[in-house]
Design a protein around this nucleic acid. Structure first.
Lengths: 195, 195
DNA sequence: ACTTTGCTTGACACGATGTCAATTGACAAA
DNA sequence: TTTGTCAATTGACATCGTGTCAAGCAAAGT
């Protein structure tokens, strides 16, 4: 099905993602992307008016590729709130490394570019919904610790699971990806699940 | 003692801090700083060879002004490990808003500038020492939860208390500064202090 | 009087983004 | 075959921010 000659727009998006992934979030220039995609720098601007637009489109494209919607949907098999929390943390936690490159570039742009900032914030609010759902499931099961309101617990889980924190735990502290997931699950369970 | 006409270097540093604080981490240009300090843009480069050098100097200057060393030193009155942890969180937590402007600028620079990156990382490693000390005090008192090794607990506390997380809790989640401190204390105590 | 110090003015190079105009080559429709 | 259109190319150019350079000036120190 997928063609040997994907259309230019797609090639650009793929190149963008490859370069961002490879360079671990370092600044990738428009000219780099163009060269990698085998087109002129100017041709980029025929498809995307600004760098921010390209980055935003690249994140959407990545979502499509990885079918993130499905992955981040609450698992049907998760029977208890506690189990569901674990499933969510695992799904999201393992998604982070795959989006890290684009994410970092988008965050960096956000400091100067309003649209990039809004795009990233929107994404993060979506992800907050996932946290809220997990915490709510816990509350419905009467398993949520008394210390927190649903909102507070959601805020905390949301922040705990931020890309920045993943970056710090893995890249700075040297945790492996599987350690990261396991420990975040354990942390969340200690904090939020009543014993 | 302090003169009516502080020397130019100092005026530059003050201007830098004022502007960074005012603009909440938004990009402040060299020319902005020069204008605010009442000198020419070029004069900046007579005192600091690069923007990163200026930012780094500004953070050091800020430390001096706020006497951060003393503030972040473990309180002598803290008798138990648990109490000492609370004291540390309060001290650091209340320090963050004061350094937020420069911190954010320095972090942003770090993406492109090696020296800025190293400066910020060094700062963060210093702060990790504070976390380690607090956790160690807990362990010495036999109050540290069994779930974590000292290193792991330090990593977690360190990350919990990051500037980025403060930013998210206060600016995104809307927690007040005092709520922030109280809740971080409560979180830390739930996670690390054995009951 | 002379020199040094601290700053000014103005010009300029560089790197990256973003814009514009003229051109080419291919493919399709008449 | 001609005509038109589409996608991309080439090359020039504007803009912004950083950083450099040279010449000059004015006040202070000796």
């Amino acid at each position: 099905m997928s063609s040997a000659q994907p259309n230019t727009r797609t090639r650009i998006l793929q190149s963008t993602l490859e370069l961002l992934e490879a360079s671990g979030g370092k600044s990738v220039r428009m000219s780099d992307i163009a060269r990698h995609a085998g087109i002129s720098r100017q041709a980029l601007y025929l498809h995307f008016t600004k760098r921010s637009e390209l980055l935003i489109a690249a994140t959407h494209y990545l979502d499509e590729m990885k079918e993130s919607d499905q992955r981040l949907l609450p698992s049907r098999e998760a029977v208890s709130g506690a189990e569901r929390l674990n499933v969510y943390i695992e799904a999201w936690g393992n998604y982070i490394p795959e989006i890290y490159g684009v994410a970092k570039a988008l965050i960096a742009m956000g400091d100067n570019d309003r649209e990039a900032n809004e795009a990233w914030e929107k994404r993060m609010l979506d992800m907050r919904q996932g946290c809220l759902a997990a915490i709510s499931a816990l509350a419905d099961d009467d398993q949520l610790t008394v210390e927190f309101s649903i909102d507070q617990a959601t805020d905390i889980l949301w922040t705990m699971l931020s890309v920045r924190n993943w970056e710090q735990f893995t890249l700075q502290c040297g945790w492996s990806q599987s350690e990261y997931v396991k420990r975040m699950q354990s942390l969340a369970s200690q904090l939020f699940v009543r014993k």
